[in-house]
Computed example of a mutant assay.
Amino acid sequence: MIQKFFDLQGASLRVSAISPVLVDCYGRIFAGRSRPLPTAPLAYGLTIISGEPLSMPEGTDPLYEGPILDEGEACFWQGPEGRTLVFPGVISLTLSDKAREATITVAPGAEERIVMTCGQLALQAALIAAKQFLVHAAGLTLPDGRVALIFGKSGAGKTTSTLALAAGGLGLCSDDAMACNVSGDRPTAWGMPRSLKVHRRTAEMLPWVQPLLSGDWSVEDERPVTLSALRTTVSVESIAAREIAAVFVLERSGVTASRCAPTSKAEVLALAAADNLRSTRTGVSEDERELFKRLGELVRAVPTYRLAAGSNPTDLASVMLAALNIQKITA
């Protein structure tokens, strides 16, 4: 059995598999940054197996049964040993109720699915064990080294705004996934940088992005841009925990100029919860209630703003910095 360890910024996640390919697939979540030995106390263990995914036992009442965006039909149920999520014939995940352990079973040829919902849920469980939590949000570092978190509904333009802010001099932590910690005196967050999917409209609004794109346009009218390509133009940050300066909710302004102003914490919490919490047929699980609690602690602890992106987002960085009373980007 091969073991690699991934740094959770103060804790370690152990990933075990019979094949290095399976571990490396999961390692993409961390941009491949693994270690042969843990550098911090072990918080969680994940075992990845190649084989026939689990199937829901007959007579079981599922917590959820239906489609999951971009991945197809799934079923989720509570078993005697823990909760299990299955995409029939493709991949399954079991989260132990008694130990800080999870198991992914993936069908041969479906290894790319390891980093999707099953892998993300395993990571969320590991982070919760490490007193942290994963949120669907962008993160950018400010000139003073702190990080700004940006939540936004689907279609609000989070990737476009993230790239515009990075081009304006802020550091890119992630456009999609940030791990937060509210257990200390000051909330912190660190990002999981990965290739971005850039829509054709984004490339038109930010012409500097176009030469960095790779591959062909997908059926969703998107092309990827790798971190190595982005580093030639903007600052891509290292994986490190940074103090959270503020939380923003992003929306489209409908006018040319962008705007940023303080907004209510209740509004920010409602949007963050809607985008990050899942419910089942039996209600909200204990893990999801804990996540909501931590989201609330985060929102209470830092200033909250509404960031309205204009049709020309190149002014976003200056608008955000002005709202935070940061006058200029230092060298």
Rank of each mutant, 00 (worst) to 15 (best):
Pro143Trp: 02
Pro143Asp: 00
Pro143Cys: 13
Asp144Trp: 03
Gly145Glu: 00
Arg146Cys: 09
Arg146Gln: 01
Val147Trp: 06
Ala148Thr: 11
Leu149Tyr: 04
Ile150Asp: 01
Lys153Asn: 12
Gly155Pro: 12
Gly155Gln: 06
Gly157Cys: 13
Gly157Thr: 05
Ser161Thr: 15
Thr162Val: 05
Leu163Ile: 15
Leu163Trp: 12
Ala164Met: 12
Ala164His: 11
Ala164Cys: 11
Gly169Pro: 10
Leu170His: 10
Leu170Asp: 09
Gly171Asp: 00
Gly171Phe: 10
Leu172Val: 01
Cys173His: 11
Cys173Ala: 15
Ser174Ile: 12
Ser174Pro: 11
Asp175Val: 04
Asp175Asn: 11
Asp175Phe: 01
Asp176Arg: 05
Ala179Asp: 12
Ala179Val: 14
Cys180Asp: 07
Val182Lys: 03
Val182Glu: 00
Ser183Glu: 12
Ser183Asp: 02
Asp185Pro: 04
Arg186Tyr: 14
Trp190Gln: 06
Met192Asn: 12
Met192Leu: 15
Pro193Val: 08
Ser195His: 04
Leu196Lys: 01
Lys197Tyr: 14
Lys197Pro: 00
Lys197Met: 13
Val198His: 09
His199Asn: 08
His199Ile: 07
Arg200Cys: 06
Ala203Gly: 14
Ala203Tyr: 07
Ala203Cys: 05
Glu204Asp: 08
Pro207Ile: 02
Pro207Gly: 00
Pro207Met: 03
Val209Pro: 03
Pro211His: 00
Leu212Glu: 08
Leu212Ala: 02
Ser218Gln: 04
Ser218Leu: 03
Val219Ala: 14
Glu220Asn: 15
Glu220Met: 14
Glu220Gln: 15
Asp221Ser: 10
Glu222Gln: 14
Arg223Pro: 02
Pro224Asn: 08
Thr226Trp: 07
Ser228Lys: 15
Ala229Lys: 01
Ala229Pro: 01
Arg231Ser: 14
Arg231His: 06
Thr233Arg: 08
Val234Met: 05
Val234Arg: 00
Val234Thr: 08
Ser235Ala: 13
Ser235Glu: 11
Ser235Gln: 11
Val236Pro: 01
Val236Ala: 01
Glu237Gly: 07
Ser238Ile: 05
Ile239Val: 15
Ile239Gly: 01
Ala240Trp: 04
Ala240Gly: 04
Ile244Asp: 06
Val247Met: 05
